[in-house]
């Protein structure tokens, strides 16, 4: 899984200034869709083979590291989703009986430190970024999640799609009760 994402030693080739700009705008657009609760439009940006993965982070000693250091493919994860899973999650948000979503959670998603490289095949891009999600609920609840993200985007019929997403938070204990959004 995620051969490309994990292969840190491979020689990476940055894309052009223009392509970098396009992809940055795409990522900003994607996050605005989430902030505006346009979940169907957001889902439409997912590739049919999407692997949307946010592994649990384990606080282990350097001599006891896992498959990928602080996380492993067969361990517990916040998200380890395909398109069907993402669709089911979205479907909960849309139920009138999602009591905890009314009043709504107000979201601000931010993406920065964007690096874009050519991927393994034509029309594929490897994107590293840093993300921040701020949520507020009720009168006074606020939750902030920071993370590092690695995406594989593909150009398909003139449209960029997200094919792989790896989200790594620094926290071994989530400092809030849930993640009722996407990152």
């Amino acid at each position: 899984m995620n051969v490309q994402i994990d292969n840190q030693t491979e020689q990476l080739h940055p894309v052009s200034f223009e392509q970098h700009h396009k992809i940055s705008c795409f990522l900003a657009y994607e996050y605005r869709l989430l902030d505006e609760e346009r979940f169907d439009d957001w889902l439409a940006l997912m590739h049919e083979d999407i692997h949307y993965w946010m592994p649990g982070i384990e606080n282990r000693r350097r001599e006891n590291l896992l498959e990928h250091g602080f996380y492993a493919g067969d361990h517990m994860a916040y998200f380890d989703d395909g398109l069907r899973d993402l669709t089911r999650r979205v479907s909960r948000f849309k139920q009138a009986s999602a009591w905890a979503e009314n009043p709504a959670t107000r979201n601000v998603h931010q993406v920065s430190n964007i690096e874009v490289y050519y991927g393994e095949t034509d029309g594929e891009y490897l994107v590293h970024s840093v993300i921040q999600s701020v949520r507020s609920r009720g009168l006074d609840e606020q939750y902030v999640i920071y993370g590092r993200r690695t995406d594989v985007l593909v150009q398909e019929a003139g449209q960029l799609k997200i094919k792989q997403r790896l989200i790594l938070i620094p926290n071994a204990t989530l400092t809030c009760k849930n993640i009722n959004t996407f990152l």
Binding site: M54, D74, M76, A77, Y78, F79, D80, D81, D85, R88, R89, R92, A98, W99, A100, L174, C176, K177, N178, I179, N180
Partner: peptide
């Protein structure tokens, strides 16, 4: 085992669609 690993997380975890509504109530 793999389906349970994913299924348990999908329903009962901080991102679980069931657990999200519990947390609000308990808090």
């Amino acid at each position: 085992k793999e389906k349970w690993r994913k299924g348990a997380m999908m329903t009962f975890s901080p991102t679980g669609v069931f657990e999200m509504d519990d947390g609000e109530n308990w808090e």
